[in-house]
Design a protein around this nucleic acid. Sequence first.
DNA 1: GGCCCCTTATAACCTATGTTATTTGTGATC
DNA 2: GATCACAAATAACATAGGTTATAAGGGGCC
Lengths: 244, 244
Amino acid sequence: MTDMDAYERLIKTFTPRDDLSSDDIALLRSMPLRIATYGKGEEIIAQDSEVSESCLMMTGWTGRAVYLESGKRQITALHIAGDFVDLHGFTLKYMDHSVVALTATQVAFVRHDELKKITHVSPHLTRLFWMLTTIDGAVQRTTIASLGRRPALERLGHLLCELDCRLSVVGLAQDHRYDVPLVQEELADILGLSVVHMNRTIQDLRKAGLVTWQGSRIVIHDFGKLTQFSGFDPRYLNFIKRER
Amino acid sequence: MTDMDAYERLIKTFTPRDDLSSDDIALLRSMPLRIATYGKGEEIIAQDSEVSESCLMMTGWTGRAVYLESGKRQITALHIAGDFVDLHGFTLKYMDHSVVALTATQVAFVRHDELKKITHVSPHLTRLFWMLTTIDGAVQRTTIASLGRRPALERLGHLLCELDCRLSVVGLAQDHRYDVPLVQEELADILGLSVVHMNRTIQDLRKAGLVTWQGSRIVIHDFGKLTQFSGFDPRYLNFIKRER
DNA sequence: GGCCCCTTATAACCTATGTTATTTGTGATC
DNA sequence: GATCACAAATAACATAGGTTATAAGGGGCC
């Protein structure tokens, strides 16, 4: 995954879901991109701001954070290489959340007027970009189900299954082994738990023998078992080729 | 709101967010629609099914339900007149949730090949349909934040604020009064609570003097106060005209 | 090697919410 | 107007998860 340029990255986000024609690819490659880097903890997009470009992840991890009046925050989504963090900004313009770099991060910004151009010249690519936002919605629905109805341990298990799938597709996980460069406080903000309970839940997962988790390194011992335990069904990730 | 035809309904969903040209309107009106009705409790779309049309709400209330292996269910979204329940099905094809009629319901189905046609002839309408799915995503993010970080009472307050806004726009709420034709078990499935605690929370809301709630009738006494109490900020609903 | 800061871990205690069961209310039906 | 069925309400009890505080690891830096 080293040295992949931003266009390759984008193409590889589409191809697990649909085939691209050479015209599609040429069109994608004609879009100007602005590469930017951020340090760990930096805010990439501010909550309540208006946006005119959207950002594709190249390397690193980012999260969408919602800050509540109470001072609490919820991370509503996690993003890794190949994810469009805020493509919804193209049709919404208004950002109801911030985007924060959870690690050092490299991203590629696409201007909205370029995306608009695509809606004028390529219905197919338009539908594919659109699809990325609806897959995002599917992930969010799954998160809602987890937060609303799954106890902490299953919730964590489900997250690990999802990350395994997503990281595998971009080559960042092999044999159900991968790195999660997040501190427990960030995980707590993702799973809607307190830090203390987040810690307890990780211990419980270890005790259950389902994973080895040392530092940022995670090894899932029996993926099928974890999948079953946490009610994970990968279909919502839409990693399947279809005519779109 | 009586006697509104499905095209009017659809147009009124767009116009709070952007202006439609007469061409746009003509094009919308050229789409064939299939009207269907469902009784309370009927399943309109099955979880894990493949779809080739999407459904616009005319009357009644529906919900997106996710059924977990544990037997629990989470309702991830609520839909009223003017909402496209499963427009994301156009780009996803696969339904990660079911759609269930929570009251007697009338809907209008649009075939996906018609929507596809629109992506070929009207970039503007395409972006507007796309926008509906991204607004849906914004609502989902807010739900995630509520489930993850708000206690039951605020969660309920937030939901009532959202419903107030959405129902007002389609003429189903006036002066912060409206009907919620849902039983407490359904509300519990929306807010991620048990039925018993749902009941307690409603009582608490009454005791706090924030609303009157008799049968299905809800009266919000001081909307500003409820808004503040529950951390509600309507901007995520995107009821604002913008060039899209 | 020692110090500092951040993170993880542990402990004790508290509370919001869940569970199971029973009672009360209410609207539909005969 | 009695009965039935379902929803709302209440009660007693159990527990997952929150809170506050402190301790233990671990890596960078002088």
